[in-house]
Design a protein around this nucleic acid. Structure first.
Lengths: 346, 346
DNA sequence: TATTAGCACTCTATCGAAATGAGTGCTAAC
DNA sequence: GTTAGCACTCATTTCGATAGAGTGCTAATA
């Protein structure tokens, strides 16, 4: 009984099994494959090969007398090796149209929606993180006797507001001075370039208002780095109901919660952005996904980049029998479109 | 055969039916009621009364040999007349804690979450609309050669940003002048107080920059009145899975979509805010709800008001067999807490 | 030696009949 | 007016039989 090896024929059979399963969602049997492929093999032969494939861990049987379904390992092989030559077709995919939108948030929401309706999977998209981006300017304004408003504009025209209270009443003149101080010192710098030394130097320059300078800088840092408010837009969560294997009460409820609360989705963003050497598309299958409740899903993500360092994540979440080619294609299209729209806006 | 009338005993029986159905979600039979109430009537008598109640339209039978469930009309009667004397108990409800939050949006999100976890229904909350509110000030800033940023602060410290392009390059001086012009003319006014006459007068004053003034005013109006971006926060959509009558694929999918897209939820807000004479709690049962996909739900809403004219809507969405008392109580508590937190923040 | 036909076997899904049981409506007695 | 009792209805559950899909194995075949 020679050790089973994954030769070319087995690959073809595995591929056929996966393709078929992606379409139907049903376990696929030997007879189906025997007709499906151009190998012209009888179902019996296929059965033998399938037994081997199972032994190798690429497919599995839900129960004794059922057909086979791909295992996570099987999907993985498929995504890594068998999909590549299909990619040409993908680009023929009909163009999705993202209308130019004034506000970033609306644009992203729209992108998520396009993605979801186009793929029939759930889609998420994170607003670009602006870490590493440069401050365009800071504007301090007195709103009330005891309240200051800091408007912070970062490269890429991302605007942040931060309101905070000060004990001492400030004159208009003082505010003007502070504005000048802040802008000359901080303008053009990225957040990580702001050193403690600079801060203390600025405080010194600010004299009696050093406290405020500290507050403002904190506010700036807070507004820019806060990843707590990492905005995530989602769409098409309801698509999970299209796939019976995800649509049972328990799973559906968990997934819906995940999408609504969005908290857990940040893990996907983190995971995707962390690995910076890989610029392209990532596919997480089953247990590989960073999010606990997506054990029965696959997640396909891409990183988009608007200008320098403004990175965000787009993701598609669907069943493991996802149409990976389509998912990857859609993701690429949206990614590209986002980047182009941004360029034009600049 | 005397025309059936809703006498006191029938009321009691109806009440018992509804109470029981709220708990169990199952049709309730005559025998149950015969034990449940202190009326000491046999099941046969109850049956007769139930037949009358059905004839009167307060209850209905899912099928011939099933117990009775409340009709919309029955729920309506219950909410309007039978619930009142229970309200005392409600106030004993354990205090929900809303932590003070710097940012309004976070506070509202938290409120929604509290509401949802506390009631086990879905919760929504709309950010206060600022129509009718006064402009505190406007700040125009040059961001780039061709781009202006307008920061608009409205009473209640709500901040809006609007970015727009201008063809002509403006000098710092001009921007300063425009700022002064805008603030002196518009400061302290509410949006509906800004008349066309004023606008043309301002344009005249602005001379060659009249175009920009127009743009800015449009931006202001847009930023303030835009109800397209009526922000709505939701939580606990997954709670619908707790109620079998809402948890089937079709219904669940529709509801989930409604919560995710949020678009349709604005109808609830509109409906709630439109009727301004009624300050308090509103209950929409079944077909009464403004949202198509909530035909099988009940919606309980309340209007909260932060300062002058800053009104928003809180709502609970659940099954028709909702615990109305608890819903109303929770809503009131959250409403009050929101208003108090706002007061303290001022 | 690799492939295939054939067959026994396994397991799920489906279908229908029967049993169950909750609940009603009606009638007659109290 | 109330109640006991009974026949009836109808959804739900249960159970066994059946069908069908698919496998694994063996023996025949090229």
């Amino acid at each position: 009984m020679g050790q089973a090896v994954l030769d070319e024929r087995k690959m073809k059979i595995l591929q056929a099994i996966i393709r078929n399963y992606l379409e139907t969602g049903e376990p696929v049997g030997s007879r189906t494959i025997s007709k499906y492929t151009d190998l012209n093999l009888s179902s019996a032969t296929i059965r033998n090969e399938m037994a081997d494939l199972e032994e190798l861990g690429y497919i599995l049987q839900p129960h004794t007398s059922a057909g086979r379904i791909p295992s996570d390992k099987g999907y993985r092989l498929y995504v890594d090796h068998m999909m590549a030559d299909k990619e040409r077709e993908v680009n023929e995919m009909k163009e999705m149209l993202l209308e130019k939108e004034e506000k970033m948030e609306r644009l992203l929401q729209q992108a998520a929606r396009v993605l979801a309706t186009n793929t029939n999977y759930a889609a998420m998209i994170s607003a670009p993180q602006i870490v590493g981006n440069k401050l365009k300017f800071i504007q301090l304004t007195k709103v009330d006797a005891g309240q200051l408003l800091a408007v912070i504009v970062v490269e890429g025209n991302v605007i942040k507001n931060e309101m905070f209270s000060v004990e001492e009443e400030l004159s208009d003149e003082t505010v003007l001075k502070l504005n000048i101080l802040l802008n000359t010192q901080l303008g053009g710098l990225s957040v990580n370039e702001i050193s403690l030394g600079m801060i203390s130097a600025m405080k010194q320059q600010a004299g009696i208002h050093s406290g405020i300078v500290g507050d403002v800088i904190d506010a700036v840092a807070g507004a820019i780095t806060s990843d707590e408010d990492l905005e995530i837009y989602t769409s098409g969560a309801n698509n999970i109901f299209r796939y019976p294997e995800l649509a049972d009460q328990k799973r559906a409820s968990e997934l819906i919660t995940t999408f609504e609360e969005k908290q857990e989705l940040t893990q996907i963003v983190q995971e995707t952005l962390s690995d910076d050497e890989n610029t392209g598309i990532k596919v997480y299958i089953g247990d590989e996904t960073p999010v606990q409740h997506m054990r029965d899903c696959s997640v396909v993500t891409a990183t988009y980049e608007l200008g320098e360092g403004m990175k965000g994540t787009i993701g598609i979440i669907g069943p493991k029998r996802m149409d990976y080619e389509k998912a990857v294609g859609s993701l690429k299209t949206v990614m590209t479109q986002l980047e182009e729209i941004y360029k034009k806006k600049q």
